[in-house]
């Protein structure tokens, strides 16, 4: 699948933002006044930047409001509702933390849960697609939620971030292993795609020039570097931030540097999430 920068930025930034908002909503961060304002602002900023980035992926964004209409069937529509509901519901809690209004924390918890639900709906947009076997697996929502919680914990300056960073690395190693066998497990081949028996090879692709399918679904650029990128992203996303946190003695600057390193790693992992995902339509082109 084509790793569109808009979708990578959207899912990483909004995931991290909603993760931070969840920790803030649950009240794990003891902050008041302008510090609270900045912290909530960071969460809202990341979430909103992510959602704005997503709109750049649209071919016809003037109809964007219509995306709220099909929540009964469409995960994309559900995500639109969940994200807006989260941002609205958490606003009173953010104001309360900032101005010290003493609003009941249960309200924040509700918003926090909804923030995680939003991340889940984002993941389901990909998980639901049977035509991309690597994504069509229970591990996809798990990875998205793990990224949101880990990134959120680092941004929230919580000591538990170190545990989450280690857990994320283990999860990624497992998921990559599962993912590499998913296409074969899905059992689709050029034979099932065409219904023809015997050995099949492509004689002519039907068009000599490129098309939308080849650009969007049969994106193979950069796959040869996938192994290197996996190693590099794994170091950036977990061990290196954890090391910085440990060396800094959980100081503020440590969390800032760790967050930045984790963010770069997360962007690389998400790039691989798309670039390594094979769509079954590739079978008609003798590609994956």
């Amino acid at each position: 699948m084509h790793p569109a920068p808009s979708v990578i930025l959207f899912s990483v930034f909004s995931g991290m933002g909603f993760g931070l908002l969840a920790f803030l909503g649950f009240g794990f961060v003891q902050a008041a006044g302008w510090i609270a304002f900045l912290w909530w602002g960071l969460g809202y900023g990341l979430a909103v930047i992510g959602l704005l980035a997503a709109s750049f992926h649209l071919g016809n964004p003037k109809n964007a409001l219509k995306a709220f209409s099909q929540w009964r069937t469409s995960w994309l529509s559900r995500e639109a509702w969940a994200s807006v509901a989260t941002l609205l519901l958490l606003a009173p809690m953010a104001l309360s933390d900032w101005l010290g209004l003493g609003l009941w924390r249960g309200f924040g918890c509700l918003g926090a849960v909804l923030a995680l639900v939003t991340v889940f709906t984002t993941a389901m947009i990909y998980t639901q697609i049977k035509a991309v076997p690597r994504w069509h697996h229970w591990s996809t929502p798990l990875v998205f939620l793990a990224f949101a919680l880990t990134g959120g914990a680092v941004l929230a300056g919580l000591a538990v971030a170190q545990v989450l960073l280690a857990g994320l690395v283990a999860l990624l190693l497992l998921v990559w292993r599962i993912g590499d066998g998913q296409f074969a497990r899905a059992g689709q081949s050029m034979n099932t795609a065409t219904g023809l028996q015997g050995e099949i090879s492509v004689f002519e692709r039907g068009h000599t020039a490129g098309n939308y399918l080849l650009r969007e679904m049969i994106y193979v650029v950069g796959r040869k570097h996938a192994a290197k990128l996996r190693g590099l992203s794994l170091v950036l996303v977990g061990p290196l931030p954890a090391l910085v946190l440990a060396l800094s003695g959980l100081a503020v600057w440590g969390f800032a540097v760790a967050a930045l390193l984790h963010l770069i790693g997360a962007l690389m992992v998400r790039w691989l999430f798309f670039a390594q995902a094979e769509h079954v339509v590739g079978l008609y082109y003798g590609a994956r």
């Binding site: 071919g59 109809n63 679904m217 339509v281």
Partner: peptide, 22 residues
């Protein structure tokens, strides 16, 4: 008139039946 051009339907189709008009 209602399409936002998100391309998700083209992803969901196993047969490559949909193409986004550039």
């Amino acid at each position: 008139d209602a399409c936002i051009g998100c391309g998700l339907c083209a992803w969901a189709c196993p047969y490559g039946a949909r193409e986004l008009d550039q």
